[in-house]
């Protein structure tokens, strides 16, 4: 429940900032009108750009934009969960509205439910491309992107204790302590995501990203199963799909 509130707060901050920049430029007070303006503007701005055609402005070479980002939401949330994680990314605008994104992270995640108590330690790397759907006004530099990532993770499990599953037990199953290692597991998945970044202070961006993940491959473990994958979150026993959200801060490097 707390996680839900946390997510709502984290998502609303960049959304509000994004909308606030709109409110300053337009003089409409009604919030609903602003929303409709945004939507219609999204489509009409396209037409304006197409009508410029071969203008001298369009001929100015766009400088390559590089951004370094850090997943703040994950880092902070892990602190509450008795875990540790960090996630960095590099964003390169290599052509018009296309970005190349490379990210990597490390996680030491603690799971303690009624049946299993273990640590997941591992790292992951993602490579992808994304495309900016949003047309900025003037010198603003926000983006709404959609993209695809390919991710690869390597991780270990350390099972501390387990309890036997026996419903209706009279002799309550006691936690059995076994420090068992399940090493060298790997997983690969594809991510399809949508992302929004807002420039807050000069060259500092705040953003969030939602994505659908599809687990392409995961290694088999003897007498155990792949449960938590760093970067993917928990793997559902009956499904290869996953879902993720990220809240990040990034900084643009100027050349």
């Amino acid at each position: 429940m707390i996680f839900l509130y946390y997510q709502i707060i984290m998502v609303s901050i960049p959304t509000y900032l994004f909308l606030y920049t709109k409110i300053v430029k337009i003089r409409f007070k009604k919030f609903l009108l602003i929303i409709t303006m945004l939507i219609s503007m999204h489509f009409s701005a396209q037409q304006k750009k197409d009508s410029i055609g071969t203008d001298s402005i369009a001929r100015i070479k766009q400088p390559v934009k590089i951004r370094l980002g850090f997943d703040a939401g994950k880092y902070i949330w892990a602190k509450f969960q008795n875990s540790f994680s960090y996630d960095f990314f590099i964003d390169v605008n290599f052509y018009k509205d296309y970005y190349l994104i490379v990210s990597g992270g490390y996680e030491k995640h603690f799971t303690d439910n009624n049946l299993l108590n273990y640590h997941t330690t591992g790292s992951y790397y993602k490579f992808g491309v994304m495309y900016n759907l949003y047309r900025n006004w003037l010198d603003m530099d926000n983006d709404i992107c959609i993209g695809i990532n390919y991710a690869y993770a390597r991780f270990d499990y350390l099972l501390h204790t387990y309890r036997i599953n026996q419903p209706g037990a009279v002799f309550t199953p006691a936690p059995v302590s076994v420090e068992q290692d399940f090493d060298n597991n790997s997983a690969q998945w594809l991510e399809l995501f949508a992302q929004m970044q807002v420039e807050t202070f000069k060259h500092l961006y705040l953003g969030y990203n939602v994505g659908v993940k599809y687990l392409v491959h995961n290694s088999e473990i003897e007498n155990f199963t792949v449960t938590y994958i760093p970067g993917f979150f928990y793997k559902n026993t009956y499904s290869r799909f996953g879902f993720g959200m990220q809240y990040f801060i990034s900084y643009r490097i100027k050349f």
Partner: peptide, 13 residues
Amino acid sequence: EKVFVSKSCGYKV
């Protein structure tokens, strides 16, 4: 005999 079932079922005997 301890047997691992699944992530959501854990171990059984």
